Simulated assay, not measured.
Amino acid sequence: MKRTMMKLSLATGLAGVLMLGACGTEEVDHASETVQSMEPVEAELNVPATADKEETVTLSVRVTQDGEAVDDADEIKFEVWKNGAKEDSEMMKASLTEDGVYEVETTFADEAVYTVQVHVTARSMHTMPTTNVTVGHPETAAEAEETSDHHHHAGAEIVLEPKQATVNEPQPFNVNVEIDHEMLTGADVQLEVFKDGAEKHEWVKLEEADGVYTGEHTFTEAGPYNVQVHVTKGHDIHEHIMETIEVK
């Protein structure tokens, strides 16, 4: 009888170990299925073009990635300043109100043209689009329009070369940037290098020489890499493109 009970106890214990092992495997497998998307995070500003002095207005941004709402942003802040007085800017933290939409309320103290810039940090990415708000009746409509044109350009033409590299060998890169068909100088240009599914992103700061931005990076593995080119200059320009580099 004792021998039968001992056998039963051993069988039960073994079954429990096998069940725990199976559960652990399920958890690991489930975790491995979660792969963070490497598509760029997009930020769409929704800010009124005009406002009255001391009027309460809502500043809003919709954050998406690959067409899906981003509800888990690390930080969303709106920075507001009267044009020509960036040193007196005000930074305000926004809150999530619905799917991918973050908002904050503010007022404008003077009749002037203000710049509104949102700082979006989400899923290891950062973007900083800007827009303008004309408050009241500034000195001239022409002045407001000129300021608006200064902050809204048609976009940048960014060219990264080359598109291939050799594993474990330093690879030089050149970046040319043009805005409105004019070469952009004095910008901060960086490369964000990563493979699909990788949590770690490497950054390469490029140096400017005669209007061309250059730098090098060594790839430690063969295969396709994503290289996102970030171009910023002051608070007016923030552009980026994504390229695929084939490493052999």
Results as ranks from 00 to 15, higher is better:
1 M>Q: 13
9 S>E: 08
10 L>T: 10
12 T>P: 01
14 L>H: 05
17 V>Y: 15
22 A>W: 06
28 V>P: 00
36 Q>T: 14
37 S>R: 02
41 V>N: 03
44 E>D: 15
56 T>G: 01
58 T>I: 03
62 R>V: 15
65 Q>E: 06
71 D>W: 01
78 F>W: 04
83 N>T: 13
98 E>G: 10
106 T>K: 04
107 T>G: 04
110 D>R: 00
113 V>Y: 03
114 Y>S: 06
119 H>Y: 13
123 R>Y: 02
123 R>C: 04
124 S>A: 13
136 G>I: 05
137 H>K: 11
143 E>D: 14
143 E>K: 14
144 A>T: 12
148 S>V: 03
153 H>A: 07
153 H>T: 05
155 G>H: 06
158 I>Y: 03
161 E>V: 08
169 E>K: 14
177 V>W: 00
181 H>Y: 09
182 E>V: 08
183 M>A: 15
183 M>V: 14
186 G>A: 08
189 V>H: 05
201 H>D: 12
204 V>G: 09
207 E>I: 02
208 E>G: 04
209 A>E: 15
209 A>W: 00
213 Y>W: 04
214 T>P: 03
215 G>W: 04
217 H>K: 02
217 H>R: 01
223 G>E: 00
228 Q>F: 11
232 T>C: 02
233 K>R: 07
235 H>G: 11
239 E>Q: 06
243 E>C: 01
244 T>S: 11
245 I>W: 07
247 V>H: 04
